[in-house]
């Protein structure tokens, strides 16, 4: 019995908790990508760097707050700084839209033109982030680091295996749930949210109904920027902030959006967790987990790891390819491709 408990604790500690946190981060990023896709109809390659930019603003504000002696008690100061980062990121995307995308929208350019324009903006966001904060790894988590420490858990339960619960992981999940609930409430219940869905569903009919496309586009960008900043900050709190890592997140985020059916908000959330749990569970070494369940003589010799963690991006890629091959519209039937 205790062996089984120990094995379960290992699973919780190394797969379930990290998977939930990572999944929530991906889901928030993918939700932004999918909303941009639904309304503006292109894959935003600058999204990873938008996350980095937003998170950078949050970090700079956090440092300023720490300098003034402001703190959020046991919670990270970054949560207080979050609104400032969101406002800055919204400013950046609205400026980008005004100066870049609007022109192509009025010309009704092809989606790939938008994608290339987003590559241009990716360079610019990237440069801004690096210019202000450099390329180094930054940790900006303060306050209480753990909710449950490994030693405490052992003492509490008497089990051999520990379960550590970091504050950042819990915050990630709580914030993500709140944000996703707010976005869905907005989309389902408010007039503007419904207008956005209507516009995404049938642009001509939406225009005929008197829905203002400029407003829909603006609100989409604002939500996407807010989601990107929150996702970027949570990822940075949970792991660390390094601009290049956010570019690398682009692939799992796209995979999440496509798996769930691109253009489908609910699908993006589900896709985020599918990708995260696949990545975590496939790259985890199960040796210690098995050591509690199997008798000594049955233990395999290796680490019992399906894939080295260096290949975690391969997992998102394989999921992506499988979906494209088997079910191109994604689990929740996204837009026609």
């Amino acid at each position: 019995m205790e062996n089984i408990l120990n094995a379960l604790v290992i699973l919780a500690n190394f797969i379930i908790v990290p998977g939930l946190a990572y999944g929530a981060q991906l889901a928030l990023g993918a939700l932004g990508v999918t909303m941009i896709y639904a309304v503006l109809r292109f894959s935003n390659f600058a999204h990873g760097d938008l996350m980095a930019f937003g998170a950078m603003l949050v970090i700079l504000t956090t440092w300023a707050m720490q300098g003034w002696g402001v703190s959020f008690g046991p919670l990270p100061t970054a949560l207080l700084a979050l609104p400032f980062g969101i406002i800055g990121a919204i400013g950046l995307v609205l400026l980008s839209d005004r100066m870049v995308y609007r022109f192509y929208r009025e010309k009704k350019s092809s989606p790939v033109t938008f994608v290339i324009a987003s590559v241009g903006l990716m360079f610019i966001y990237n440069a801004l982030t690096r210019f202000f904060i450099g390329t180094e790894d930054i940790r900006f988590e303060d306050g209480e680091r753990f909710i449950i420490r490994a030693a405490e858990f052992r003492a509490m339960t008497g089990l051999a295996e520990p379960l550590a619960l970091r504050t950042s992981q819990v915050i990630t999940v709580v914030v993500a749930v709140a944000v996703v609930a707010a976005v869905f409430w907005f989309l389902q219940k408010t007039r503007t949210g419904k207008a956005m869905r209507a516009y995404s569903d049938n642009e001509d009919l939406a225009l005929l109904s008197g829905i203002d496309p400029k407003r829909v586009v603006m609100i989409t960008w604002m939500i996407a920027a807010a989601l990107a900043t929150i996702a970027g900050t949570l990822y940075g709190l949970d792991k660390s902030f390094r601009p290049f890592n956010f570019f690398l997140l682009l692939l799992p985020i796209f995979a999440s959006a496509i798996v769930g059916g691109i253009g489908q908000p609910f699908g993006a959330i589900a896709g985020g967790f599918v990708v995260a749990f696949s990545e975590v569970s496939i790259t985890y070494a199960y040796r210690r987990f098995l050591s509690h369940l199997l008798p000594e003589e049955w233990m395999p010799s290796g680490l019992v790891q399906l894939l080295s963690t260096d290949y975690k991006f391969a997992v998102s890629f394989v999921i992506l390819v499988l979906v494209l091959l088997v079910r191109p519209n994604g689990i929740f039937k996204g837009r026609e491709i």
Partner: peptide, 11 residues
């Protein structure tokens, strides 16, 4: 779709 090729090649 053209975007999908971009994403797949990125991967």
């Amino acid at each position: 779709r053209s975007d999908y090729l971009a994403i797949a090649t990125l991967g």
